[in-house]
Design a protein around this nucleic acid. Structure first.
Lengths: 357, 357
DNA sequence: GCGTGCCGTCGAAGCGCTTCGACTACACGC
DNA sequence: GCGTGTAGTCGAAGCGCTTCGACGGCACGC
């Protein structure tokens, strides 16, 4: 009734216990004939190696942990895809993925978990520009890799979205459509100053490409809400009436901008173009018109993070991989040729709500 | 350098290895004095029990698996919260949670994983009305519980959103605001006929409460997209011009409805009220006005699922828990008193897009 | 004052696997 | 023909823990 053990397989195949192990893992040569007998015995018994026993004996559990902040700001479809991508990759490579939700400062707790020797390595998500967790991990000496990266990238493997490149691609696309006055709508200033990587790096990318393209880099911080987005949009248009395109890094705010535009009587994309950065299809397709977006290859990032970690675990030779993956431009309905700003409605229509920001 | 073992703790405390184990687990009485010595030795060494060894010896790994479909339809913020809620609960109870993403029909793969004896139990997510996975699990005899439930609820513990109650609460709320013509906007018909529980149960709940309140139950299926939502809305209003409120079970479509209303010149909530069922705050706050919504207690559901499973693992006595948790009404800006349908704009303004559905 | 029982502790036997050393062919070179 | 190597196999020693049986005390009843 209970699960068959390796010993039972060995008996059934008329070999020693250790020979079964060798056949299973290829640790030592086994003759074609015995291998066959063993394999047959295993399938007949429905044998599956006992993960714990194997791990204990070999000192390699084939379990890795995914470390992510417990109550993260704006955990959405993108992050979920990291997780599922990572889990699938791990499973495909014969590993298990455990979830370690943890406050970013709960370093003591992290250390405890690591000391349990349950996992062979750790994949860290939502890495901050200055992150205590990675300091701890390297100090303990646990193998790990990251999705995201700290400010000072050292000798640890990571994958991350190429925010700079993504932003540049978005701006380049808009410039190609004839836009010359392009504004960047960021997350809230607090996130930026707290060193939230995506916010910082996208902003840097925007300034760079705008400047080098001879444009004036117009930027706004904005709370992560539709209302804030609408308000900041009004504010922005008041200050820069000739802006014809927006690059946004803030989904709720983007939704608010679209409402604000509609309220002004502006049509998208006829009167205003919008490219939403790092937005999943799921979110981009919620608006009308659907948003042209730079979509992160989230599952791919999760997968790469896991592969990187496992390679590090299996080969001793740690060839350092540090990979940046830009988002892919998916053109939907929110972008079009640059309009003549003068032809756009100048009065707000509809509601007379006043921007309060 | 390497992690301290129980033997080292025992030596340092001048006791037998087994005594340390007893002190740690409370398996047998240990005198206050020795317990203290042991505890001290443990903290000095920074001892943490070796999870694999403990699991192997005790035949209880203290690891549970979360089983969820690999490429789920509409995996969003709600589902992510299940996951994080479950992970946190597990961690809080001294367990680890591993992720098993798996196609719903990949029953063979599931069996293999279970046979590895890595996990003590399984928590199944996204349970279908007719689900092979739960058949397999009960047959193998693995302890498990579910988030969601099959059609025939038997002797397995589960937690689920109370879709019927949630829908009833939404309708009751609208009736209280004076609405009499209330329509229900469901997911696509395919999901319904395929036996997608939330869709089926919410629809049943709606018909029940509408009928018993003396209202005509008006329902529409709708594809999960903003465009479909807009089209179905046009269609709906054409057929039932006196509808003043919508109960929706389809987020992208709800967004489309709001656009459609706005295009008609209707104001929300002045001309139309909307309650979005089973919507997270994150989504509900993306619109303007923000959506009044029935918000699932997702983290709580994940937590309950885990607690239920672990209780089953620890006490032999399986007191069967089957718990339905209704969503909570969060009133935002999309609902108000019933208007007089006659006072609403009768022509579509703005775009002259024609409903194609 | 001698069983009876329980508290507190110990040593040893596993849990199901990996891995090491050893041993037996058998093939090879010269 | 004798060392030398290698493919193929075996037995045994752990991995770090739990748990079982045993045993020395000490308190108790009568």
């Amino acid at each position: 009734m209970s699960a068959p053990t390796m010993l039972e397989v060995a008996k059934k195949a008329n070999v020693a216990l250790s020979t079964v192990s060798y056949a299973l893992n290829g640790t030592r040569p086994v003759s074609e004939e015995t291998r066959l007998r063993i394999w047959q015995a295993m399938t007949e018994l429905g044998y599956q190696p006992h993960a714990l026993a194997r791990g204990l004996a070999s000192k390699r559990s084939r379990i890795i942990a995914l470390l992510f902040p417990a109550l993260p700001r704006g955990f959405g479809a993108t992050e979920l895809e990291f997780v599922t991508g990572a889990a699938e990759a791990a499973q495909g490579m014969g590993y298990h993925l455990v979830l370690w939700p943890m406050e970013i400062h709960a370093v003591g707790e992290l250390q405890q978990l690591v000391r349990q020797s349950l996992v062979d390595g750790v994949l860290v998500m939502e890495v901050r520009l200055n992150d205590e967790r990675i300091e701890l991990l390297r100090q303990i000496g646990v193998p790990f890799s990251m999705i995201g990266r700290p400010a000072a990238v050292s000798d640890i493997g990571f994958v991350d979205i190429d925010f700079e490149q993504t932003t540049r691609d978005a701006v380049t696309y808009l410039v190609g459509l004839g836009h010359r006055q392009i504004a960047f709508l960021n997350h809230a200033e607090e996130a930026f100053t707290a060193g939230y990587g995506p916010s910082v790096r996208a902003a840097a990318g925007f300034n760079l490409v705008a400047t080098s393209a001879g444009l004036t880099p117009i930027s706004r911080f904005c709370g992560d809400s539709a209302m804030a987005g609408q308000d900041v949009f009004e504010d922005l248009i008041a200050a820069h009436p000739d802006v014809t395109a927006l690059v946004t890094m803030n989904e709720p705010a983007t939704f608010g901008v679209m409402q604000g535009a509609s309220r002004r009587g502006w049509r998208i994309p006829d009167d205003l173009s919008i490219v939403s950065l790092v937005s999943s299809a799921r979110v981009a397709e919620m608006t009308l018109p659907p948003l042209t977006a730079m979509t992160p290859q989230s599952a791919q990032l999760g997968r790469l993070g896991v592969e990187m970690l496992i390679e590090q675990l299996e080969d001793g030779n740690r060839e350092l991989v540090q990979q940046l993956l830009p988002c892919r431009l998916v053109i939907r309905g929110s972008t079009g040729p640059s309009p003549d700003p003068a032809t756009r409605p100048h009065q707000k229509s509809g509601s007379s709500r006043v921007a309060t920001g």
